[in-house]
Every structure is written in C-alpha cells, then in structure tokens.
Simulated assay, not measured.
Amino acid sequence: MATGWAGDGAVQDQIDATVSDAVQRARQQLRQGPGLSHCEECDAVIPPARREAVPGVRLCVACQQVHDEEQRGAGLYNRRGSKDSQLR
C-alpha cells in the first residue's frame, strides 16, 4: 500500500538501499595482504596472532577501538531524516 507520493514498495526499496550502502562501505574498509608488525598510529607491536586473525591489520587493539568509535558516529545517516529515532 502506497502512502502519499511514495510508490508501492518504496519503503522496502529505501531499506534495501540503506543495507546495500552499508555492506558496500564495510567491504571497502576491509584490508588485504600482509599486516604490519607495528601499529601505524602508536608504533606498538601487533601480536602475531592478531596479524594472523585480521588480514591487512594496521592498528593495535587499543588504536583500533578508538578508530571504530570515531567511525561509528561519523558514518551514520538516515535517508528519512525525520524518522531517525525510529530506525535506531
């Protein structure tokens, strides 16, 4: 059932587009190849187990946590602006 000017399935199309964008953004952030032996931010040693578990690792755990927190707030946006609180 369409409401207002929206066509049938418009809400689902919007949800699909948002999910697709998030998957694409996540795939772009994946690193490939060998990881670093030392963190590129603080120069701490990255343990061999972490380098093995995370291909292309460039940050130690502490720096990665800080980076993830910064990314969490910066990457979220909502195509339906006024409905933002309903989507969280």
Rank of each mutant, 00 (worst) to 15 (best):
A53Y: 07
G75P: 00
L59F: 12
Q24T: 13
R31A: 14
A22L: 13
Q32K: 03
A44L: 07
G73Y: 13
S20D: 13
V11I: 07
D13E: 12
Q12I: 12
H38E: 06
E41D: 14
H38G: 00
C39L: 00
D13R: 14
A10E: 14
C42N: 04
N78K: 00
G81Q: 12
L36H: 11
R51D: 03
L59A: 05
G35W: 01
V66K: 06
G75T: 15
I46D: 01
E70T: 09
D13Q: 10
A26Y: 09
G75N: 14
I46M: 04
A17P: 00
K83A: 15
S37N: 06
T18M: 07
A17M: 01
V66Y: 02
C63E: 05
A2Q: 08
P34V: 15
V61N: 08
L36F: 10
S37V: 15
E40K: 00
G7Q: 10
I46F: 02
M1Y: 00
R79V: 05
A49N: 10
V19F: 03
L36R: 13
Q29E: 14
G7N: 08
D68I: 02
A44C: 12
G81R: 09
Q24H: 06
Q64A: 13
V19D: 03
A26H: 09
Q65C: 02
Q24W: 03
Q86T: 06
L76Q: 09
Q65N: 10
K83E: 15
S85E: 15
R27Y: 00
D68M: 08
H38Y: 09
G35H: 01
D13L: 03
A10G: 05
H38I: 04
R27D: 15
N78L: 10
E70H: 06
E41M: 03
A62Q: 11
V23Q: 12
L30S: 06
A44G: 05
A2P: 07
R58S: 11
I15N: 08
Q32H: 11
G81L: 11
R31C: 04
Y77A: 14
P55I: 05
L36K: 10
M1C: 08
I46N: 01
A17S: 04
R50F: 02
P48W: 04
E69Q: 12
C42T: 05
R50H: 02
E52N: 09
V45A: 13
V11W: 10
Q12C: 06
D84H: 13
V61C: 05
A53L: 06
A10T: 01
T18N: 07
E41T: 15
R25N: 07
D8P: 04
Q64N: 09
A62L: 10
Q24C: 01
R50S: 09
G35C: 07
